[in-house]
């Protein structure tokens, strides 16, 4: 049994209902400090609901959420508490288009977050911190003056990551953060996320339906199906030797060399034109 201190994020017995629908049903998992956990499942399986509960955007019907050893299940009452929680967990959404304020430049957005969390910094230091953040996510100094619409999808997602980092959080929730990106840009952002984890020892909770992305970015993984946790283990175990039938089906659904045979093996009239 690990010490509780060692855990960056701990979720236990989480439950959430919307009317008669049970969106999340008795879900528990934990991520150690500096670790990275993949939360896998299809649409409607309850992944985003869990993220929202962790962020405090939704309240749970039952269960507990602890970050850095501190309970955050109940709503934050004071501004100080809210700020402290923001330094514990940050989130990066799927669609940087809608999660960034279209009228705010990237620079002023970052500076506002830095000011909120480091009130002792003078203007010059703040600006330096913004530059460091941009540099960290591979953006250029000139992007301080850019509005979100003047940036490409990949650049916007980098800006959203920089904003999450600005609070220097212990945990970053990545909710399908690379799903909307093009293959070549997705690879850049995945590399960036891996680097950042190494450099800053930040903890990731990666929510994704893309098993390859989960493989690339996480150490452990849990699989959700219809609100319930059906499998958990190291990412390698879960993906290479899935135990639950649902995980097995997910794994088999990924297009790949094995899939070709499966698809072509279906009986057909014109068999000679098979996909080679």
């Amino acid at each position: 049994m690990k010490l509780t201190d060692d855990l960056a994020l701990e979720v236990s017995g989480l439950r959430k209902t919307y009317g008669s629908v049970v969106a999340v049903d008795d879900v528990s998992f934990a991520i150690r400090r500096g670790g990275s956990l993949g939360l896998v499942g299809e649409s409607g399986s309850g992944k985003t609901t869990i993220a929202k509960i962790i962020l405090g955007l939704e309240s749970a019907a039952a269960g507990q959420v602890r970050a850095c050893g501190r309970d955050r299940t109940a709503a934050a009452r004071t501004l100080g508490e809210r700020r402290r929680r923001a330094r514990e967990v940050q989130i990066v959404f799927q669609d940087p288009h809608s999660s960034l304020d279209p009228r705010q430049t990237i620079g002023s957005m970052l500076e506002a977050v830095v000011r909120l969390h480091h009130r002792d910094l003078i203007a010059g230091e703040r600006r330096q911190r913004v530059m460091d953040l941009l540099d960290m996510v591979g953006l250029h100094e000139r992007h301080t003056a850019a509005l979100p619409r003047e940036m490409s999808g990949g650049q916007r997602q980098r800006a959203a990551i920089a904003r999450a980092l600005a609070a220097e959080p212990e945990v970053i929730v990545l909710d399908e953060s690379v799903a909307a990106l093009d293959v070549s840009i997705q690879a850049q952002v995945l590399n960036l996320l891996a680097d950042l984890r190494e450099r800053l020892s930040v903890t990731y909770l990666l929510i994704s339906h893309d098993l390859a992305v989960v493989r690339q970015l996480t150490d452990t993984a849990v699989v959700m199906c219809q609100g319930q946790l059906v499998e958990s283990g190291t990412t390698a175990q879960v993906l290479d030797d899935p135990q639950h039938i649902y995980t097995q089906r997910l794994r088999a659904s990924v297009p790949g060399p094995t899939w070709v045979r499966r698809v072509s093996a279906t009986p057909s009239i014109l068999d000679e034109g098979g996909a080679s």
Binding site: V183, S184, I185, Q186, A187, Q188, L190, N191, A194, L211, A212, V213, R215, Q216, T235, A236, L239, D240, R251, V254, G256
Partner: peptide, 15 residues
């Protein structure tokens, strides 16, 4: 550039 589901790459070859 595409991550792989069957093994983890040390680094993705991003374009």
């Amino acid at each position: 550039a595409r991550p792989r589901v069957d093994r983890r790459l040390a680094r993705l070859e991003a374009i």
